[in-house]
Amino acid sequence: MTDRCLACSLTPEAEPVEHRRAQAGGGLRHTAKVFRAEALKQHRRVFGSRLVVFSMLVWPLMQLAATYYTVRPLAATPGIAGRWPLAADPERLLAFLATGALGFTFFFSLVQSAWHFSFERVTGTLELLFLSPAGRLAIVVGNGFGALVQNVWLFACFMVALFTALDVVHVAHPAMYAVVFLALLVPAVAWGAFLNSLLIFSRDSAFLYTLLDDPMWFAAGVRLPLFALPVWIRVFGSVLPLTGSLAVVRGALLDGRTIGELAPTLLGLGALTVLLTLGAVAALRLGEANAQRTGRLRLF
């Protein structure tokens, strides 16, 4: 360690540039910076090892195959065209389950990243985030977004290739691809921000992690059509943004629905996204205020 050259740029002027800039505002630009920083952090975390290709691609594919083989004996039964027309065609059944797997990968990757984020409380870096002037919402949204993009791109590409090969996609209008993309991405990011905020202040993050794994695929209709689920499970599933996302994705890609037909679902999904974001803001406010009062980075 040397103390040479300290004066050159550490104290270039009486008041450093960033102090003045902070006072001048510039919130959006700072938010963009936090986004980029979180994206790098997630990239290093996710790609710390080459084995990540397992969790990104191999696991969801194996899971998809096992699900397909498990459900197939039910679909290849007489009268299936009346009960569930889509399942009468094995390729469309596979596409249905594949969309479920894709959606689940989107939303569960955020559960995972939130779980990892909760470890920052243990390692002490969470305190450093709160020490900094960076916007808290920007941090949790950026963290979720970074995790999402890096966790799902490979599987998403694979799924696009699969759908092309199966030739099962029939959209009402090319713009529906954009609708599908946004219907997956936007609620997922809000979901990620909400979970990040919740989990960093949660005493038992392992419990929430478990709670959002199996119940989520079950209630959101990842492996079964919603009509197969009892009403009370559908009610529970309706608060999960994955349910709405999947309804839009399947409606647009597999059933050729138009934006008009999907409008109610899209509106519900939008409302849920807003609620999740507000929930994230509230959890962050309460959590930080509680930490400032008790010295413990815990909300409950």
Partner: peptide, 13 residues
Amino acid sequence: LGLAAIGGGRVAG
């Protein structure tokens, strides 16, 4: 649930 709603109580041969 799948057996009831999809298979109609039956399973493939």
